[in-house]
């Protein structure tokens, strides 16, 4: 167990190092860090001296080390567009993205699991086919089209929900939340659905497939031979065995939800990290791009690590490889 955790952590660090190299390469070679400081009419001599002072003439390895140490302290340089430290910009926008991603994930899990279980247990019903159809459409409609459709329906036509922004937010320390005001909650609905729909489809398909798979296993057959009630078999044995892999996948998907929020945030002008990133790509603001990559990777890697460890807690077979022996 300890060895497993350690190995996983080493892997995580390896991944972060790899991403760090890419981020550094972008920062250093695709963008010119001098641009962070100077304006267009700075003379070549001045640029050279700035280069010197920034250490851009040092060996690449030294520069990488410096970038890495800075990154560890959340110093990602200065945005070309805003002339502000990238770290501050990201921090300011992180709560919006995280709140959106969490709501979307909850939405996706609740509905995905319910629909998946239903369509596995009642395979031949109308409703199950409807869910299948919805899932196909959910996979086929690009996120931004879903967003536009929702806006047209609920904001433009019906006028029930706001079409952009976060509504009123409340400050809790450095965190800002939209969960405490009515307008904030209303503003969350459409973006959460838009962002969560794809994950919901995935979860539903996965739950359905897993559940059907589990229902075919020997231990379910044996549970039936023991005369357990259908209820106990479906919602005790089968569901528990289904949810272990499903929760793993859903957990791992949380990282993608954050990355996918790029699109949703653009459609709904949601002031999160994704919107910041899209604007950075449009305006070639390399420091923000590099930092966003690092931040998102960090979130990914952390989640993967946590999920892996949680998995061993849920599944006794993995837990005791080192622990108790028979």
């Amino acid at each position: 167990m300890l060895a497993f955790t350690l190995r996983r952590m080493l892997q995580a660090i390896g991944v972060m190092l790899a991403v760090g190299i890419i981020a550094f390469a972008m920062f250093r070679f695709a963008g010119d860090p001098v641009n962070q400081i100077v304006s267009i009419d700075t003379s070549a001599a001045e640029r050279a001296s700035i280069r010197q002072s920034l250490g851009l003439d040092d060996p690449v390895l030294v520069q990488f080390g410096r970038y890495f140490i800075n990154a560890l302290q959340f110093k990602f340089g200065v945005s070309y567009q805003f002339r502000l430290p990238v770290a501050n910009l990201l921090m300011e926008r992180m709560p919006a993205t995280l709140e959106l991603a969490i709501c979307a994930t909850l939405f996706a899990m609740v509905f995905g699991i319910l629909m998946g279980v239903y369509s596995a247990l009642r395979r031949d019903t109308m409703l199950a086919s409807l869910f299948q159809a919805v899932s196909l459409i959910g996979i086929s409609l690009p996120t931004f089209l879903i967003g536009i459709l929702l806006i047209y329906l609920f904001a433009v036509t019906l006028g029930w929900l706001p079409s952009f922004g976060r509504g009123e937010v409340v400050k809790l320390g450095w965190w800002t939340t939209g969960l405490l005001t009515l307008s904030g909650l209303k503003a969350l609905i459409m973006p959460s659905i838009t962002l969560g729909l794809f994950q919901m489809t995935l979860i539903m398909r996965l739950v359905r497939a897993e559940m059907l798979e589990v229902l075919r296993t020997d231990y379910i057959r044996f549970a039936r031979a023991r005369g357990l009630t259908t209820r106990a078999i479906h919602f005790g044995h089968a569901l528990k065995n289904t949810l272990v892999p499903v929760i793993t996948v859903a957990g791992l998907q949380f990282g993608s939800v954050i990355a996918f929020s790029i699109i949703t945030e653009t459609v709904f002008q949601w002031p999160g990290m994704g919107l910041l990133f899209v604007q950075a790509v449009q305006n070639v603001d390399i420091p923000i791009m590099a930092a966003y990559l690092l931040m998102v990777s960090l979130i990914f890697v952390t989640i993967n690590l946590v999920v892996d460890i949680l998995y061993t807690v849920v599944d006794p077979r993995l837990r005791s490889t080192v622990g108790r022996t028979a």
């Binding site: 296993t217 020997d218 231990y219 057959r221 044996f222 549970a223 039936r224 031979a225 023991r226 005369g227 357990l228 044995h237 528990k240 065995n241 272990v244 849920v314 599944d315 006794p316 077979r317």
Partner: peptide
């Protein structure tokens, strides 16, 4: 089933639910 007729299957490795 299970009360008046007991059943034993071939493979004990897969007959028991691993999570319980």
């Amino acid at each position: 089933r299970g009360k008046r007729i007991g059943m034993i299957f071939q493979d004990p490795l897969t007959s028991l639910n691993p999570l319980y």
